[in-house]
Design a protein around this nucleic acid. Structure first.
Lengths: 195, 195
DNA sequence: AATGATTAAGCAAGCAATTGCTTGTTGGAT
DNA sequence: ATCCAACAAGCAATTGCTTGCTTAATCATT
């Protein structure tokens, strides 16, 4: 493959860096940012205690990178899910289901890292807020479309805030093996939003 | 005052202990449990770094006590608010407003400490869960009453979970000086719950 | 192709600061 | 005289992070 874009060294580098990112995200969500030591993260990927600092300048940098990566993965998943769906009601239902998926499925749970924002400096917090805002705007647009045709029980903005509360808070009580399924939660939430 | 139940020494003790509890609760909510040092707490009430340990055996004990105190204060506020209200719809509205009050008004914000449960040992977590359950049951009862007369948009249990999500998550975006007021949030939430 | 220079990636060791908590002591109210 | 409440001082462990070095892979030049 003479036109390969990556030398082997670079590929390995990216892999290890991603491993660190994923392990850190998992541990941060599991135990919280402060309760997770850089030694925990290193051990999780089989490195020595100081080695992660070759890939990331600081522990906070690691958190910031994990948050941005997780937010953008969720954003792309959302965009892919709604692609080609024109009916706004149907689109909202798909968005709700997609959001619950990134929030509760798999082992990453990256969106919940946003809750650890306070561990970051103000400049990093602003970066996160910018990425997060783009995600919110996709929702705002769809909700306003629904509100315009009288299909929402509340104005778009308060509705968005309350809806995100319902969805995000589900991380506090959702258990994958019992109780409501993701589809059921999604349908229940949609039921409350739509008039 | 021969029948006084408290000597002055005890009264002062209780005062200082309560000061510690309130300061700790505020700091824990503000910065998180791990990011708050026992020195922060001591300084907040004008003590030296080791003195809080005269009143509390450990930092975790301080958190546990603050959580229980906050939860029970909220519970009493709720009970007082609904006393004598028989109409279940009216009672739910009052409960929602009361819950938002304990959550967002004043400077204590104790209910949000529940989110710091993971910093506790399992036995302490169980104690907290027990107190928290009593609070939830008051809601469950009222919601079931409403569901029985067909006034709920969803069955009582999922409705309770989603409702608490809407309300508790409001701490993430509510600002006392702009946007929606507590009364407006309460009304919007009630609107979504009731059929 | 062979050789020397450079770099990527990580290890070993440890530093400086912080942390929760303990110990022995002291002033003041009863 | 007694004892509550707090102080002064510091210990032991942990923490994020740094430094100097090693190993292997890559690159440039002959």
């Amino acid at each position: 493959m003479p036109t390969g874009h990556k030398r082997q060294g670079s590929a390995l580098e990216a892999n290890r860096r991603d491993e660190l990112l994923r392990a850190a995200a998992r541990l941060f969500v599991e135990k919280g940012f402060d309760a997770t030591t850089t030694r925990d993260i290193a051990e999780a990927v089989g490195m020595r205690s100081g080695s992660p600092f070759y890939h990331f300048r600081s522990k906070q940098d690691l958190l910031k990178a994990a948050m941005i990566e997780g937010l953008e993965a969720g954003h792309q998943r959302l965009q892919a899910a709604v692609a080609g769906i024109d009916d706004p009601e149907r689109r909202l239902r798909v968005m709700i289901r997609s959001h619950l998926g990134t929030l509760l499925e798999g082992d990453c749970h990256a969106p919940m890292l946003v809750y650890e924002s306070r561990s970051l400096g103000i400049t990093a917090r602003a970066e996160i807020a910018a990425v997060s805002d783009r995600y919110q705007q996709a929702w705002q647009a769809t909700l306003e479309q629904l509100a315009a045709s009288g299909k929402l029980r509340l104005p778009a903005k308060p509705m968005r805030l309350l809806l995100f509360g319902m969805l995000n808070w589900s991380r506090q009580w959702y258990r994958s093996n019992g109780g409501l399924s993701l589809d059921e939660i999604a349908e229940a939430a949609a039921e409350m939003v739509l008039a």
